[in-house]
């Protein structure tokens, strides 16, 4: 697990639901097909209404039209990030686009679980609301061990909550790796 992630921030608001993160029309792609999987990157966050896309100004696409990768590594959200459907395609899409970490006030349960068990993204929780004090494009650094998000552009440091009881699963790289490490599943995974 990367414990220090430095990159450009992409800021969203509250209740960003899974239909905004990856609209249902793209769920026909099979994430287990390598060629199709990259389209989840292309369409990550494409359901966010333009005015809320990359706050405070909006009108910032997460992934440029026709491309597969984002310039943003750190997604900042408000309350209830990832609410809505159980689609694992949501954290997968954000990760496939190239982002590494989400920092939100708190998460919808299934999205959080999918981040952890699927090993896609680090789902960090902030101890204060960051949505208004961070601007899309700010250079930030998340230090998991120190439990901080530093906004290098604005010279501010914010505390994150500890990852807590899911830390061993995150450190292992997901549920399957964790189950193998702890002896619950035998052997190594044949496909990875």
């Amino acid at each position: 697990m990367e414990t220090k992630i430095k990159g450009t921030a992409y800021v969203l608001g509250d209740d960003v639901d899974t239909d905004q993160i990856i609209p249902a029309s793209y769920l026909a792609y099979n994430p287990e097909d390598a060629k199709e999987r990259k389209y989840f990157g292309m369409y990550a966050m494409s359901g966010v209404p333009p005015k809320q896309a990359g706050l405070p100004d909006g009108e910032n696409r997460f992934v440029p039209e026709g491309e597969f990768e984002t310039e943003y590594t750190i997604v900042i959200g408000g309350r209830n990030f990832g609410c809505g459907s159980s689609r694992e395609h949501a954290p997968l899409a954000i990760a496939e686009a190239g982002a590494k970490v989400v920092v939100a006030e708190f998460y919808a349960r299934i999205f959080y679980r999918n981040c952890v068990n699927g090993g896609y993204l680090l789902p960090c929780e902030s101890t204060e609301r960051l949505v208004e004090q961070t601007h899309t494009g700010d250079e930030c650094e998340v230090d998991v061990d120190a439990g901080t998000l530093t906004n290098l552009t604005r010279g501010t440091t914010h505390q994150l909550k500890p990852l807590g009881e899911v830390t061993p699963i995150i450190e292992a790289g997901g549920l399957f790796a964790y189950a193998r490490q702890t002896g619950m599943l035998e052997g190594s995974s044949p496909g990875s």
Binding site: P31, S86, E88, R113, N114, N117, G118, A179
Partner: peptide, 8 residues
């Protein structure tokens, strides 16, 4: 649940 949980 998501796909990973379901596969498990």
């Amino acid at each position: 649940v998501g796909n990973t949980d379901a596969a498990f």
